[in-house]
Nucleic acid binder design. Structure first.
Lengths: 128, 128
DNA sequence: ATTTGTGCAAAATTTTTGCATTCTC
DNA sequence: GAGAATGCAAAAATTTTGCACAAAT
């Protein structure tokens, strides 16, 4: 059991991340924190963000340094394999409840959504 | 009405993208296509990918050059505003049908998922 | 012919790393 | 004091751009 270490920077990053309603990029976070910690380094922000994500205290949305492209226009879901970092089409039927929920949302004018399941793909699971 | 132009490269990119089950990065696509088009340029791949996406013939998964981070661990959904490119927490109750669907999937061992709704946020909608 | 696309190389962005120093436990 | 975290600057990796030339309508 490794206790999570604390540092002024890490705590500030985590606190700031929790207190914001939006989901900033590392750079946006850095820009904000820099106002009170002028010596903060962007590398520290990156390091901590990834560490937090690994420790299960944070999430990386839109992870991966590279964008992934898709040509299938028929609505469908995706499957992200945590092991091989590939994205597959999920063989999962559309869920109408999601559209219904989007319709009922007053917070924004939603016209689509993307659903990405995460786990270990068949191929990687069989590699043991 | 602008007809979509064709070029050897664009057609090859589109065809390859459609025929693959995975969702390659620009670079992966480039590597494959290069085998039959040795002069193909990576820049061309990027240009066409974005063009296809704009024309509604393709999708950019995990778009945006920058990763977005999130500290809220309680499961929740996200809202991506196409106008301001920000990501908000969606005020939408959890949909149990999604978990059920994940459970039934034999294609992979799914343990989580991320749902991102897309549209125009309240704030941007009011700016007109 | 005119417009649009391509390749190449250079620039801009975003993210990661190496290393000496500083901070936590 | 040992191990971990930081800052800085340099390196990688990813994406975009400028421009001369080629291709498409």
């Amino acid at each position: 059991m490794t206790a999570v270490r604390h540092s002024r920077q890490r705590d500030a990053i985590y606190t700031e991340l929790c207190s914001r309603g939006d989901h900033p990029t590392a750079d946006e976070l850095y820009a904000t924190l820099r106002q009170t910690m002028p010596n903060l380094s962007l590398a520290t922000v990156y390091r901590n963000l990834h560490q937090l994500a690994e420790a299960g205290q944070g999430n990386i949305l839109y992870t991966s340094a590279a964008d992934h492209f898709d040509a299938v226009m028929k609505p469908h879901y995706h499957l992200y394999c945590r092991q091989c970092h590939r994205i597959y089409d999920a063989d999962i039927p559309l869920i109408s409840e999601i559209d219904r929920a989007a319709q009922n949302c007053t917070q924004a004018d939603i016209d689509s959504y993307s659903l990405v399941f995460e786990g270990i793909c068949e191929h990687c699971a069989n590699q043991h």
